[in-house]
Computed example of a mutant assay.
Amino acid sequence: MSWKNSRMSLSTQQQMIPRFLGMRGLMICGAPPVRHNQMSQGFNASPHLGIASKQELSEAEINAFVEATIGKSAEPFLRDAVARADGRFRKRLFEAARAGEGVNQRLIVESSPVPLAVVNGGADSLVNLDYFDTVAYANLWEGRCNRLSGLGHAPFWEAQEEFTPVLERFLRDVETGRATSFYKD
């Protein structure tokens, strides 16, 4: 089972919960559920975030960004995807975040009964891993945020052999109803 191409962007993962009433569970990776006006709490200061917000990227910036987000194992098609992405969207996304526009993702995960699995690479330098532990999730799978030791921002890409069993366990728990056992009334 390959999950390399199934990751959604930060701006849509948690936002899907109230928009898709049939959702039975959601797993997030590298996407801190932040308040619309407090994005900086969920991320570490990094030159790579600056790159992510630029409209135009140089070859060196593209390569640095891909390595920071996907890791050294990134295949050429990922670099090509970053190169052809519409820079106007990147620029607008970060302008909107700085202006406090958008939804309160933290409120969504703190109030939704949908089982939420939080799985991050334990060596992710882009997100503030400790921030994830400050969120009062309404239904956090296994009652904790999972960190996969030694992996970066894209653990599903870097080490499928470690990530896939966690995903499969979550899917089984969602299917059997065990994922909801942590829901607080």
Rank of each mutant, 00 (worst) to 15 (best):
Y131W: 06
A179N: 04
F65D: 02
L107S: 14
K54V: 02
V103P: 04
L148A: 03
F156W: 13
V103G: 06
R106S: 07
P32G: 04
I62T: 04
G150V: 08
R147A: 09
C29E: 14
S6V: 12
D133Y: 01
S73F: 03
T164Y: 11
G30I: 03
L140P: 01
E56V: 13
P113D: 14
R84F: 01
N44Q: 12
V34R: 03
K91D: 00
D86P: 02
E59H: 05
P115M: 02
E56F: 05
Y131G: 00
V66P: 03
N5K: 12
A154H: 01
S46A: 02
G22F: 00
M1N: 11
F20C: 14
A138L: 09
D133T: 13
I17V: 11
N146F: 15
G100S: 12
N5T: 10
I28L: 14
V103H: 09
R88E: 15
P32C: 05
V118K: 10
R90D: 01
Q15E: 14
V127K: 01
A31F: 07
L57G: 05
R88L: 10
C29A: 14
D124Q: 10
V109Y: 01
N63K: 15
P113A: 11
T69R: 12
A99S: 14
I108Y: 02
